[in-house]
Nucleic acid binder design. Structure first.
Lengths: 284, 284
DNA sequence: AGAAGGACCAGTGGTCCGTA
DNA sequence: AGAAGGACCAGTGGTCCGTA
């Protein structure tokens, strides 16, 4: 296994207020492995990031709710959905609209296994740790749902992200987690290869985007060994089964399966035919 | 099992045109058990049912599509989604907007196992048969998805209903199928009880709604025997696992579980306490 | 009154693109 | 230029309620 008991690191340019960011310490399951306070971010007061393409009015009400119009057959069961996790403090309410906190997480850099990122960066062990946190949040949402006799999610859904945010884990968000799912998948399915890749890309000084791209190929190789069924591969792994298979990974497996089949059939037609190369996976 | 080779019955007031309603005979899987031409409906030319609360413009484009904005990383893969199942003929296009065909299915009546409904009615064997048809349509959608390397649905989703409609099975629709899922569940899980219930309700001259309501109780009893896990019960059954657990059934199981637990604990407190009665399940 | 189903709607999966 | 994530959008699950 990897060394996970990383040291606390300097929190440069961070934490001007006691942000409630470790409220998820209450999380059940994986529990106590205190994750060495990485260089998060989101504490520095800064210009409010005013992305207002349309700016919906909704303040994202309810919580672990069902969708659609409510049935009224058993309506004695209706509950006013959970505000149990206390509200985040209102942002941008009063006068000081200009100078309000809303900082992003520090960007990831390619780190070796066990290595903690320096400066305003986050390392890959921390990235993978976020996936474990999401898993814990899913477990909590599942327990609440079971307790209430509601539909129980099997995957990390919007509902889980909403729950995580309410619990104070503001550094978890859907676009980020979905972006790196396949990297986490490689880490789960073949740590050796994942670690080797990390070391190689760090040594070469590659950026996170290049490393992320490179994670696809070994996954496709694994898929090939399992009859190209990437869904089955995800579902068979206890930590991976809760994540949706990323669209691009699914497509790559599909393309490669077809390419492999075409190559095989052309070989069977003319025994000396050259293999068909596929350009999606070149560049590693 | 039940006698499924029912005789063809008179098609009173039906079929003025060769409606393409048996196009799903191409369906793979369960195949050939020709289901005795029940008194469907939807052939009689009648006043166009003009439900226009808002009347969306959309003509329900694409088919087995993914949602959201398309990724452009592997965009050579983009396909123009399936119009493979030919379009239904345009309805309400020209002059004769008034006198156009759009009839509903005949209503269900409570029939015994093996009994075919008389007159402009449909029987319960036919109802259950529709669930098998949906299963076949799901298989087809799954095969197409696998073939294309797309996400593969495990349940009867909107996509499957859309596919069924395109395939000409206009008598299949989501509200109907969802409405009677728990009746089909009882039929799957305990045919004996289901058949007994049908005979009893037919004899008493009860309507379909009353029979439908009565199907809940035996299911809750089954759930009690399986630790109240209605999801597990559905998932364990090959024909049932493709259907979402109906909200009301889930709620009833939840309420009954709590009631049973309360009763048990009150018994353990004072051995002679009266059982707590639950009114959701009375009336059977 | 009893029932079939078009149409609606809140919340989903998916990811783009304005932002820093 | 590289990256984080708010916000968007097409299509979903769920079922109401205008209709016959």
């Amino acid at each position: 296994g990897l060394p996970h008991g990383l040291d606390s690191l300097s929190q440069e340019g961070l934490s001007e207020e006691p942000v409630q960011q470790e409220k998820q310490a209450v999380v059940g399951g994986g529990g106590g492995e205190k994750w060495g306070e990485p260089t998060h971010g989101h504490d520095h007061r800064k210009q409010l990031q005013l992305q207002q393409r349309r700016r919906r009015i909704s303040k994202v009400a309810g919580g672990v709710a069902g969708s659609g119009r409510r049935g009224n057959e058993v309506n004695e069961l209706e509950e006013n959905d959970d505000e149990e996790i206390e509200d985040q403090e209102e942002i941008g309410g009063g006068l000081s609209c200009i100078n309000i906190e809303r900082q992003r997480e520090h960007p990831f850099i390619v780190t070796e296994p066990g290595e903690v990122a320096r400066g305003k960066k986050n390392g890959l062990d921390y990235l993978f740790h976020l996936y474990e946190l999401c898993r814990d949040f899913l477990f909590q949402v599942q327990n609440i749902a079971k307790d209430r006799g509601e539909k129980c999610p099997t995957k990390v859904t919007n509902q889980v992200f909403r729950y995580a945010k309410k619990a104070g884990a503001t550094y978890i968000n859907k676009p980020k987690m979905r972006h790196y799912v396949h990297c986490y998948a490689l880490h789960c399915l073949d740590v050796e290869t994942s670690n080797t890749l990390r070391r190689a890309f760090k040594e070469r000084g590659e950026n996170v985007g290049a490393w992320r791209q490179a994670c696809y190929k070994p996954l496709v190789v694994i898929a090939a060994r399992h009859g190209w069924d990437i869904d089955a591969i995800f579902n068979a792994h206890p930590r991976l089964s809760i994540w949706y298979v990323p669209t691009k990974l699914r497509q790559l497996c599909h393309v490669q399966r077809n390419a492999a089949a075409a190559a095989a059939s052309s070989v069977s037609l003319s025994a000396g035919a050259p293999p068909i190369t596929n350009h999606y996976l070149s560049g590693f």
